[in-house]
Design a protein around this nucleic acid. Structure first.
Lengths: 228, 228
DNA sequence: GCGATGCTTCGGTTACGATCGAAGTATGAA
DNA sequence: TTCATACTTCGATCGTAACCGAAGCATCGC
Protein backbone atom coordinates (compact mmCIF):
# COMPACT_ATOMS: atom_id res chain seq x y z
CA UNK A 1 0.00 0.00 0.00
CA UNK A 2 2.77 2.40 -0.79
CA UNK A 3 1.26 5.39 -2.43
CA UNK A 4 2.61 8.81 -3.06
CA UNK A 5 5.78 10.53 -2.04
CA UNK A 6 8.04 9.26 0.67
CA UNK A 7 7.17 11.25 3.71
CA UNK A 8 8.96 8.95 6.12
CA UNK A 9 12.38 9.82 4.78
CA UNK A 10 12.15 13.53 5.46
CA UNK A 11 10.27 12.86 8.67
CA UNK A 12 13.19 10.76 9.84
CA UNK A 13 15.64 13.44 8.79
CA UNK A 14 13.84 16.01 10.90
CA UNK A 15 13.11 13.46 13.61
CA UNK A 16 16.53 13.43 15.18
CA UNK A 17 16.90 16.08 17.91
CA UNK A 18 20.39 17.12 16.88
CA UNK A 19 19.34 17.53 13.25
CA UNK A 20 16.14 19.31 14.23
CA UNK A 21 18.12 21.80 16.26
CA UNK A 22 20.46 22.44 13.38
CA UNK A 23 17.59 22.97 10.98
CA UNK A 24 15.87 25.30 13.42
CA UNK A 25 19.05 27.29 13.78
CA UNK A 26 19.41 27.55 10.02
CA UNK A 27 15.87 28.90 9.82
CA UNK A 28 17.61 31.99 11.07
CA UNK A 29 18.71 32.47 7.47
CA UNK A 30 22.36 32.88 8.33
CA UNK A 31 24.84 30.41 6.89
CA UNK A 32 26.55 28.44 9.62
CA UNK A 33 29.69 26.34 9.65
CA UNK A 34 29.79 22.69 10.60
CA UNK A 35 31.42 23.50 13.91
CA UNK A 36 28.80 26.07 14.82
CA UNK A 37 26.07 23.62 13.94
CA UNK A 38 27.70 20.97 16.07
CA UNK A 39 27.37 23.46 18.91
CA UNK A 40 23.67 24.07 18.45
CA UNK A 41 23.11 20.34 18.11
CA UNK A 42 25.01 19.60 21.26
CA UNK A 43 27.24 17.04 19.59
CA UNK A 44 30.83 16.69 18.43
CA UNK A 45 31.93 17.83 15.00
CA UNK A 46 32.35 14.28 13.76
CA UNK A 47 28.78 13.43 14.53
CA UNK A 48 27.58 16.72 13.12
CA UNK A 49 29.45 16.02 9.93
CA UNK A 50 27.57 12.81 9.31
CA UNK A 51 24.27 14.48 10.16
CA UNK A 52 24.97 17.31 7.77
CA UNK A 53 25.90 14.87 5.02
CA UNK A 54 22.58 13.12 5.50
CA UNK A 55 20.62 16.35 5.46
CA UNK A 56 22.37 17.42 2.30
CA UNK A 57 21.78 14.08 0.62
CA UNK A 58 18.12 14.44 1.56
CA UNK A 59 17.95 17.79 -0.19
CA UNK A 60 17.29 19.83 2.92
CA UNK A 61 20.62 21.61 3.06
CA UNK A 62 23.00 23.24 0.67
CA UNK A 63 26.62 23.89 1.41
CA UNK A 64 29.19 26.15 -0.05
CA UNK A 65 32.86 25.82 0.55
CA UNK A 66 34.74 28.92 1.45
CA UNK A 67 38.34 28.45 2.30
CA UNK A 68 38.59 25.79 4.92
CA UNK A 69 35.09 26.51 6.12
CA UNK A 70 31.94 24.88 4.93
CA UNK A 71 28.90 27.06 5.22
CA UNK A 72 25.56 25.34 5.43
CA UNK A 73 22.18 26.87 4.64
CA UNK A 74 18.71 25.55 4.09
CA UNK A 75 18.44 24.36 0.51
CA UNK A 76 15.72 26.87 -0.37
CA UNK A 77 12.70 28.69 0.97
CA UNK A 78 10.51 25.62 0.70
CA UNK A 79 12.58 23.94 3.39
CA UNK A 80 12.24 26.99 5.60
CA UNK A 81 8.50 26.95 5.13
CA UNK A 82 8.34 23.27 5.97
CA UNK A 83 10.30 23.75 9.17
CA UNK A 84 8.29 26.76 10.25
CA UNK A 85 5.01 25.01 9.49
CA UNK A 86 6.10 22.06 11.58
CA UNK A 87 7.03 24.46 14.36
CA UNK A 88 3.62 26.03 14.14
CA UNK A 89 2.01 22.64 14.27
CA UNK A 90 4.12 21.50 17.19
CA UNK A 91 3.43 24.70 19.09
CA UNK A 92 -0.29 24.16 18.59
CA UNK A 93 -0.05 20.67 20.07
CA UNK A 94 1.77 21.96 23.09
CA UNK A 95 4.92 20.09 22.12
CA UNK A 96 7.00 22.81 23.62
CA UNK A 97 10.35 22.30 25.16
CA UNK A 98 9.75 24.76 27.92
CA UNK A 99 13.09 26.29 28.41
CA UNK A 100 12.11 29.71 29.62
CA UNK A 101 15.64 30.99 29.38
CA UNK A 102 16.40 34.66 29.17
CA UNK A 103 16.40 34.66 25.41
CA UNK A 104 12.81 33.56 25.13
CA UNK A 105 11.17 36.99 25.56
CA UNK A 106 13.48 38.53 22.99
CA UNK A 107 12.65 35.73 20.59
CA UNK A 108 8.96 36.24 21.03
CA UNK A 109 9.24 39.95 20.48
CA UNK A 110 11.20 39.89 17.24
CA UNK A 111 13.17 37.22 15.47
CA UNK A 112 14.22 36.31 12.00
CA UNK A 113 12.36 33.63 10.11
CA UNK A 114 14.52 32.61 7.17
CA UNK A 115 14.86 36.15 5.84
CA UNK A 116 11.92 38.11 7.20
CA UNK A 117 10.62 39.44 10.49
CA UNK A 118 8.67 37.17 12.83
CA UNK A 119 7.44 37.26 16.40
CA UNK A 120 5.24 39.91 17.98
CA UNK A 121 6.71 42.64 15.79
CA UNK A 122 6.29 40.60 12.63
CA UNK A 123 2.64 39.98 13.39
CA UNK A 124 2.11 43.61 14.34
CA UNK A 125 3.63 44.80 11.10
CA UNK A 126 1.33 42.68 8.98
CA UNK A 127 -1.71 43.66 11.04
CA UNK A 128 -0.85 47.29 10.61
CA UNK A 129 -0.30 46.96 6.88
CA UNK A 130 -3.67 45.29 6.52
CA UNK A 131 -5.33 47.83 8.80
CA UNK A 132 -4.02 50.73 6.78
CA UNK A 133 -5.14 49.21 3.51
CA UNK A 134 -1.66 48.60 2.20
CA UNK A 135 -2.20 44.88 1.99
CA UNK A 136 -5.39 43.02 1.22
CA UNK A 137 -5.96 39.81 3.10
CA UNK A 138 -8.18 37.59 1.04
CA UNK A 139 -8.87 34.17 2.36
CA UNK A 140 -5.51 33.08 3.66
CA UNK A 141 -3.58 34.95 0.99
CA UNK A 142 -2.09 38.41 0.83
CA UNK A 143 -1.90 40.98 -1.93
CA UNK A 144 -0.25 44.37 -2.07
CA UNK A 145 -2.56 47.25 -2.94
CA UNK A 146 -1.72 50.35 -4.97
CA UNK A 147 -1.77 52.38 -1.80
CA UNK A 148 0.62 49.93 -0.25
CA UNK A 149 2.96 50.21 -3.20
CA UNK A 150 3.04 53.98 -2.86
CA UNK A 151 3.53 53.89 0.89
CA UNK A 152 6.43 51.50 0.51
CA UNK A 153 8.09 53.75 -2.02
CA UNK A 154 8.06 56.49 0.61
CA UNK A 155 10.17 54.39 2.94
CA UNK A 156 12.55 53.45 0.17
CA UNK A 157 11.27 50.11 -1.07
CA UNK A 158 10.76 49.77 -4.80
CA UNK A 159 8.23 47.05 -5.38
CA UNK A 160 8.99 46.93 -9.08
CA UNK A 161 12.39 45.47 -8.38
CA UNK A 162 10.87 42.82 -6.19
CA UNK A 163 8.29 41.81 -8.75
CA UNK A 164 10.97 40.89 -11.23
CA UNK A 165 12.06 37.95 -9.08
CA UNK A 166 10.16 34.73 -9.47
CA UNK A 167 9.59 34.56 -5.75
CA UNK A 168 6.10 35.60 -4.60
CA UNK A 169 5.87 39.17 -3.34
CA UNK A 170 3.60 38.56 -0.38
CA UNK A 171 3.23 35.33 1.45
CA UNK A 172 1.76 34.66 4.83
CA UNK A 173 3.80 32.59 7.22
CA UNK A 174 2.36 31.17 10.40
CA UNK A 175 4.16 32.43 13.45
CA UNK A 176 4.76 29.70 16.00
CA UNK A 177 5.01 32.00 18.98
CA UNK A 178 2.08 34.23 18.16
CA UNK A 179 0.10 31.57 16.28
CA UNK A 180 -0.93 34.21 13.78
CA UNK A 181 0.34 35.15 10.36
CA UNK A 182 3.23 37.42 9.58
CA UNK A 183 4.54 38.67 6.26
CA UNK A 184 6.98 36.54 4.27
CA UNK A 185 7.91 36.59 0.60
CA UNK A 186 10.26 39.00 -1.11
CA UNK A 187 8.44 41.96 0.40
CA UNK A 188 8.88 40.58 3.88
CA UNK A 189 12.55 40.19 3.18
CA UNK A 190 12.88 43.70 1.77
CA UNK A 191 11.20 45.25 4.79
CA UNK A 192 13.45 43.51 7.27
CA UNK A 193 16.51 44.42 5.22
CA UNK A 194 15.51 48.05 5.28
CA UNK A 195 15.15 48.04 9.07
CA UNK A 196 18.61 46.59 9.41
CA UNK A 197 20.04 49.01 6.85
CA UNK A 198 18.51 51.96 8.64
CA UNK A 199 20.12 50.81 11.86
CA UNK A 200 16.79 50.38 13.59
CA UNK A 201 17.70 46.88 14.59
CA UNK A 202 20.47 44.36 14.36
CA UNK A 203 20.80 40.64 14.34
CA UNK A 204 22.40 38.87 17.24
CA UNK A 205 25.35 36.61 16.84
CA UNK A 206 24.13 33.38 18.33
CA UNK A 207 20.37 33.60 18.38
CA UNK A 208 17.57 34.16 15.95
CA UNK A 209 16.34 37.14 17.89
CA UNK A 210 16.47 40.65 16.46
CA UNK A 211 17.30 43.52 18.78
CA UNK A 212 15.73 46.90 18.12
CA UNK A 213 17.51 50.03 19.27
CA UNK A 214 15.43 52.41 21.36
CA UNK A 215 15.22 54.79 18.41
CA UNK A 216 14.46 51.96 15.97
CA UNK A 217 11.77 50.71 18.29
CA UNK A 218 10.15 54.12 18.34
CA UNK A 219 10.29 54.46 14.57
CA UNK A 220 8.95 50.99 14.00
CA UNK A 221 5.98 51.42 16.32
CA UNK A 222 5.21 54.78 14.73
CA UNK A 223 5.44 53.38 11.22
CA UNK A 224 3.22 50.42 12.01
CA UNK A 225 0.53 51.58 14.40
CA UNK A 226 -2.27 49.39 15.61
CA UNK A 227 -5.75 50.83 16.03
CA UNK A 228 -6.67 49.70 19.48
CA UNK B 1 20.42 26.21 22.13
CA UNK B 2 16.96 24.75 22.41
CA UNK B 3 14.55 27.30 21.10
CA UNK B 4 10.98 27.03 20.08
CA UNK B 5 8.66 24.11 19.66
CA UNK B 6 9.85 20.54 19.55
CA UNK B 7 9.92 19.66 15.92
CA UNK B 8 11.97 16.51 16.36
CA UNK B 9 9.24 14.71 18.19
CA UNK B 10 6.67 14.93 15.43
CA UNK B 11 9.36 14.42 12.84
CA UNK B 12 10.28 11.17 14.52
CA UNK B 13 6.62 10.16 14.67
CA UNK B 14 6.26 10.64 10.94
CA UNK B 15 9.74 9.31 10.29
CA UNK B 16 8.95 5.65 10.68
CA UNK B 17 7.84 4.04 7.41
CA UNK B 18 5.05 2.03 8.96
CA UNK B 19 3.64 5.07 10.75
CA UNK B 20 4.03 7.23 7.68
CA UNK B 21 2.04 4.74 5.64
CA UNK B 22 -0.70 4.67 8.23
CA UNK B 23 -0.88 8.45 8.34
CA UNK B 24 -0.96 8.66 4.56
CA UNK B 25 -3.77 6.14 4.49
CA UNK B 26 -5.72 8.13 7.05
CA UNK B 27 -5.34 11.22 4.90
CA UNK B 28 -8.05 9.46 2.95
CA UNK B 29 -10.41 10.82 5.60
CA UNK B 30 -11.95 7.45 6.32
CA UNK B 31 -11.66 6.02 9.82
CA UNK B 32 -9.70 2.79 9.83
CA UNK B 33 -9.36 0.03 12.38
CA UNK B 34 -6.09 -1.04 13.94
CA UNK B 35 -6.07 -4.23 11.88
CA UNK B 36 -6.59 -2.36 8.63
CA UNK B 37 -3.82 0.04 9.52
CA UNK B 38 -1.52 -2.85 10.32
CA UNK B 39 -2.17 -3.97 6.76
CA UNK B 40 -1.25 -0.67 5.16
CA UNK B 41 1.82 -0.48 7.35
CA UNK B 42 2.91 -3.96 6.43
CA UNK B 43 3.28 -5.03 10.06
CA UNK B 44 1.53 -7.22 12.60
CA UNK B 45 -1.29 -5.95 14.75
CA UNK B 46 0.84 -5.96 17.86
CA UNK B 47 3.37 -3.66 16.31
CA UNK B 48 0.65 -1.50 14.83
CA UNK B 49 -0.91 -1.17 18.23
CA UNK B 50 2.21 0.32 19.75
CA UNK B 51 2.64 2.62 16.78
CA UNK B 52 -0.94 3.83 17.05
CA UNK B 53 -0.56 4.43 20.75
CA UNK B 54 2.48 6.60 20.06
CA UNK B 55 0.74 8.55 17.36
CA UNK B 56 -2.20 9.16 19.63
CA UNK B 57 0.00 10.23 22.51
CA UNK B 58 1.70 12.61 20.10
CA UNK B 59 -1.62 14.19 19.24
CA UNK B 60 -1.65 13.11 15.62
CA UNK B 61 -4.44 10.59 15.86
CA UNK B 62 -7.79 10.32 17.53
CA UNK B 63 -9.58 7.08 18.18
CA UNK B 64 -13.11 6.15 18.93
CA UNK B 65 -14.17 2.80 20.26
CA UNK B 66 -17.08 1.15 18.59
CA UNK B 67 -17.90 -2.30 19.79
CA UNK B 68 -14.78 -4.34 19.69
CA UNK B 69 -13.30 -2.17 16.98
CA UNK B 70 -11.15 0.86 17.45
CA UNK B 71 -11.46 3.37 14.68
CA UNK B 72 -8.57 5.71 14.12
CA UNK B 73 -8.66 9.04 12.32
CA UNK B 74 -6.32 11.97 12.03
CA UNK B 75 -6.75 14.19 15.06
CA UNK B 76 -7.92 17.17 13.02
CA UNK B 77 -7.52 19.00 9.75
CA UNK B 78 -4.21 20.52 10.84
CA UNK B 79 -2.66 17.08 10.85
CA UNK B 80 -4.01 16.40 7.37
CA UNK B 81 -2.54 19.66 6.15
CA UNK B 82 0.80 18.83 7.68
CA UNK B 83 0.92 15.42 6.04
CA UNK B 84 -0.16 16.77 2.67
CA UNK B 85 2.35 19.58 2.84
CA UNK B 86 5.09 17.12 3.63
CA UNK B 87 3.97 15.03 0.68
CA UNK B 88 4.10 18.06 -1.54
CA UNK B 89 7.55 18.86 -0.30
CA UNK B 90 8.77 15.30 -0.72
CA UNK B 91 7.33 15.12 -4.21
CA UNK B 92 9.16 18.30 -5.12
CA UNK B 93 12.46 16.83 -3.95
CA UNK B 94 11.94 13.72 -6.02
CA UNK B 95 11.65 11.58 -2.93
CA UNK B 96 9.22 9.34 -4.68
CA UNK B 97 8.81 5.71 -4.02
CA UNK B 98 8.25 4.89 -7.63
CA UNK B 99 5.79 2.09 -7.48
CA UNK B 100 3.98 2.51 -10.74
CA UNK B 101 1.29 0.03 -9.77
CA UNK B 102 -2.05 -0.05 -11.51
CA UNK B 103 -3.67 2.22 -8.98
CA UNK B 104 -1.34 5.10 -9.67
CA UNK B 105 -3.17 6.53 -12.70
CA UNK B 106 -6.48 6.45 -10.85
CA UNK B 107 -4.88 8.21 -7.90
CA UNK B 108 -3.46 10.89 -10.11
CA UNK B 109 -6.78 11.48 -11.79
CA UNK B 110 -8.94 11.88 -8.71
CA UNK B 111 -8.41 11.06 -5.09
CA UNK B 112 -9.57 12.21 -1.72
CA UNK B 113 -7.39 14.47 0.36
CA UNK B 114 -8.76 14.39 3.90
CA UNK B 115 -12.27 15.38 2.85
CA UNK B 116 -11.96 17.13 -0.48
CA UNK B 117 -11.10 16.35 -4.08
CA UNK B 118 -7.47 16.19 -5.17
CA UNK B 119 -5.54 15.03 -8.20
CA UNK B 120 -6.03 16.13 -11.78
CA UNK B 121 -9.75 16.64 -11.29
CA UNK B 122 -9.24 18.62 -8.11
CA UNK B 123 -6.81 20.96 -9.81
CA UNK B 124 -9.07 21.27 -12.84
CA UNK B 125 -12.04 22.17 -10.68
CA UNK B 126 -10.19 24.99 -8.96
CA UNK B 127 -8.78 26.27 -12.24
CA UNK B 128 -12.24 26.32 -13.72
CA UNK B 129 -13.75 28.10 -10.73
CA UNK B 130 -11.07 30.74 -10.96
CA UNK B 131 -11.41 31.01 -14.72
CA UNK B 132 -15.15 31.58 -14.51
CA UNK B 133 -14.76 34.24 -11.83
CA UNK B 134 -16.35 32.20 -9.08
CA UNK B 135 -13.23 32.28 -6.99
CA UNK B 136 -10.65 35.02 -6.73
CA UNK B 137 -7.07 33.94 -6.36
CA UNK B 138 -5.21 36.66 -4.56
CA UNK B 139 -1.62 36.00 -3.70
CA UNK B 140 -1.65 32.44 -2.52
CA UNK B 141 -5.11 32.69 -1.00
CA UNK B 142 -8.59 32.06 -2.32
CA UNK B 143 -11.87 33.89 -1.86
CA UNK B 144 -15.36 33.11 -3.05
CA UNK B 145 -16.99 35.85 -5.15
CA UNK B 146 -20.65 36.80 -5.23
CA UNK B 147 -20.97 35.18 -8.63
CA UNK B 148 -19.44 32.05 -7.21
CA UNK B 149 -21.91 32.04 -4.36
CA UNK B 150 -24.81 32.24 -6.78
CA UNK B 151 -23.41 29.58 -9.09
CA UNK B 152 -22.95 27.22 -6.19
CA UNK B 153 -26.50 27.72 -5.06
CA UNK B 154 -27.60 26.50 -8.49
CA UNK B 155 -25.92 23.17 -7.92
CA UNK B 156 -27.36 22.87 -4.45
CA UNK B 157 -24.64 24.18 -2.21
CA UNK B 158 -25.67 26.80 0.34
CA UNK B 159 -22.62 28.80 1.24
CA UNK B 160 -24.37 30.42 4.18
CA UNK B 161 -24.41 27.12 6.01
CA UNK B 162 -20.72 26.65 5.43
CA UNK B 163 -19.82 30.10 6.67
CA UNK B 164 -21.29 29.35 10.06
CA UNK B 165 -18.55 26.84 10.79
CA UNK B 166 -15.31 28.16 12.14
CA UNK B 167 -13.39 26.34 9.45
CA UNK B 168 -12.20 28.51 6.54
CA UNK B 169 -14.42 28.38 3.50
CA UNK B 170 -11.73 28.30 0.86
CA UNK B 171 -8.25 27.09 1.36
CA UNK B 172 -5.69 26.13 -1.20
CA UNK B 173 -3.95 22.82 -0.73
CA UNK B 174 -0.88 21.86 -2.69
CA UNK B 175 -1.44 18.78 -4.76
CA UNK B 176 1.54 16.45 -4.63
CA UNK B 177 0.81 14.72 -7.91
CA UNK B 178 0.00 17.81 -9.93
CA UNK B 179 2.22 20.16 -7.94
CA UNK B 180 -0.45 22.80 -8.23
CA UNK B 181 -3.18 23.98 -5.89
CA UNK B 182 -6.58 22.46 -5.44
CA UNK B 183 -9.52 23.59 -3.34
CA UNK B 184 -9.73 22.57 0.31
CA UNK B 185 -11.69 24.05 3.21
CA UNK B 186 -15.35 23.55 3.95
CA UNK B 187 -16.28 24.46 0.38
CA UNK B 188 -13.95 21.83 -0.99
CA UNK B 189 -15.55 19.31 1.30
CA UNK B 190 -19.06 20.34 0.32
CA UNK B 191 -18.32 20.05 -3.38
CA UNK B 192 -16.92 16.56 -3.07
CA UNK B 193 -19.84 15.51 -0.90
CA UNK B 194 -22.27 16.72 -3.50
CA UNK B 195 -20.55 14.72 -6.24
CA UNK B 196 -20.77 11.61 -4.14
CA UNK B 197 -24.40 12.32 -3.20
CA UNK B 198 -25.34 12.84 -6.81
CA UNK B 199 -23.82 9.48 -7.63
CA UNK B 200 -21.28 11.02 -10.00
CA UNK B 201 -18.46 9.26 -8.24
CA UNK B 202 -17.78 6.87 -5.42
CA UNK B 203 -14.95 6.16 -3.06
CA UNK B 204 -13.08 2.90 -3.33
CA UNK B 205 -12.73 0.53 -0.45
CA UNK B 206 -9.01 0.21 -0.09
CA UNK B 207 -7.51 3.16 -1.85
CA UNK B 208 -7.71 6.93 -1.71
CA UNK B 209 -8.76 7.09 -5.34
CA UNK B 210 -12.18 8.29 -6.36
CA UNK B 211 -13.89 6.62 -9.29
CA UNK B 212 -16.15 8.67 -11.51
CA UNK B 213 -18.99 6.97 -13.36
CA UNK B 214 -19.11 7.64 -17.12
CA UNK B 215 -22.12 9.90 -16.60
CA UNK B 216 -20.54 11.61 -13.59
CA UNK B 217 -17.41 12.17 -15.57
CA UNK B 218 -19.38 13.84 -18.34
CA UNK B 219 -21.25 16.06 -15.91
CA UNK B 220 -18.12 17.01 -14.03
CA UNK B 221 -16.21 18.00 -17.14
CA UNK B 222 -19.20 20.00 -18.36
CA UNK B 223 -19.63 21.77 -15.05
CA UNK B 224 -15.95 22.66 -14.78
CA UNK B 225 -14.70 23.48 -18.26
CA UNK B 226 -11.20 24.69 -19.00
CA UNK B 227 -10.66 27.34 -21.62
CA UNK B 228 -7.93 25.86 -23.72
C1' DG C 1 58.31 23.93 4.00
C1' DC C 2 55.69 23.67 8.91
C1' DG C 3 52.06 23.72 12.26
C1' DA C 4 47.26 25.00 13.12
C1' DT C 5 42.49 24.88 12.00
C1' DG C 6 38.17 22.99 9.93
C1' DC C 7 36.17 19.17 8.46
C1' DT C 8 35.50 14.19 6.96
C1' DT C 9 36.17 9.18 7.25
C1' DC C 10 36.93 4.99 9.81
C1' DG C 11 36.12 1.72 13.52
C1' DG C 12 33.93 0.13 17.38
C1' DT C 13 30.60 0.79 21.13
C1' DT C 14 26.18 1.58 22.77
C1' DA C 15 21.44 2.45 23.16
C1' DC C 16 17.06 2.82 21.50
C1' DG C 17 13.16 1.33 19.10
C1' DA C 18 10.90 -1.62 15.71
C1' DT C 19 9.50 -6.11 15.50
C1' DC C 20 6.92 -10.32 16.62
C1' DG C 21 5.39 -14.52 19.60
C1' DA C 22 2.75 -15.37 23.43
C1' DA C 23 -0.32 -14.22 26.85
C1' DG C 24 -3.96 -11.14 28.60
C1' DT C 25 -8.35 -8.17 28.24
C1' DA C 26 -12.64 -6.73 26.17
C1' DT C 27 -16.61 -7.25 23.20
C1' DG C 28 -19.75 -9.80 20.43
C1' DA C 29 -21.92 -14.08 18.70
C1' DA C 30 -23.85 -18.64 19.41
C1' DT D 1 -21.48 -20.34 29.14
C1' DT D 2 -18.33 -20.90 25.54
C1' DC D 3 -15.91 -19.64 21.57
C1' DA D 4 -14.27 -16.20 18.28
C1' DT D 5 -12.73 -11.69 17.12
C1' DA D 6 -10.32 -7.22 17.92
C1' DC D 7 -7.03 -5.29 20.26
C1' DT D 8 -3.37 -4.44 23.98
C1' DT D 9 0.49 -5.65 26.99
C1' DC D 10 4.57 -8.27 28.05
C1' DG D 11 9.02 -10.10 27.03
C1' DA D 12 12.77 -10.92 24.28
C1' DT D 13 15.36 -10.38 20.00
C1' DC D 14 17.56 -7.87 16.60
C1' DG D 15 19.11 -4.04 13.53
C1' DT D 16 20.13 0.26 12.89
C1' DA D 17 21.80 4.59 13.71
C1' DA D 18 23.70 7.92 16.86
C1' DC D 19 27.82 8.69 19.01
C1' DC D 20 32.75 9.63 19.84
C1' DG D 21 38.03 8.71 19.64
C1' DA D 22 41.46 8.51 16.40
C1' DA D 23 43.28 9.11 12.09
C1' DG D 24 43.18 11.22 7.49
C1' DC D 25 42.57 15.35 4.10
C1' DA D 26 42.38 19.97 2.84
C1' DT D 27 43.32 24.81 3.43
C1' DC D 28 45.22 28.72 5.63
C1' DG D 29 48.91 31.51 7.90
C1' DC D 30 53.56 31.83 8.57
Amino acid sequence: MKEGPDIAQIGALIGDPARANMLAALTGGRALTATELAGVGGITVQTASTHLAKLEAGGLLAQRKQGRHRYFTLADEAVARLIESMMGFAAGRGHLRHQPGPKEPALRKARICYDHLAGDYGVRMLDSLIGSGSIDAVGDGLALTEKGENDLKCIGIDVGDLRSSRRPLCRSCLDWSERRAHLAGSLGKALLSSFLDKGWARRTAESRSILFTPEGDRQFLMLFPIDA
